[in-house]
Nucleic acid binder design. Sequence first.
DNA 1: AAGTTGACTTTCG
DNA 2: TCGAAAGCCAACT
Length: 103
Amino acid sequence: MARRPPEDFVEAVLDIVAAIPPGAVMTYGDVAATMGSRAARAVGNVMALSGSDVPWWRVIRSSGLPPIGHEDRALAHYRAEGTPLRESADGYRVDLRRARHLA
DNA sequence: AAGTTGACTTTCG
DNA sequence: TCGAAAGCCAACT
């Protein structure tokens, strides 16, 4: 199982995530791409382990949905920061078109 | 060295 | 617009 990746990888991810301005979001793929890699999954793994110290809710999937199991908490943050949301029938999803932050 | 796993992405029907 | 399948990357056993 994938446990904690080397600190270099972790720090790189945390640095990028911490650089995302309030009200904006980035997809895992974008974060990975910013690091010069496409390890979207590895990024998610890092968030799951060390994401406690960074605004993890600003990192979401390409679908505009936050990580599985954290949709509720993320929503609270989005509403507090004024992140553009698209309200759906039984849920919501971030308006990537406007909230996406390019590094 | 080969197989498994994961807060993913993209393509196809 | 949605669901299933395949693809990819980094790390662990």
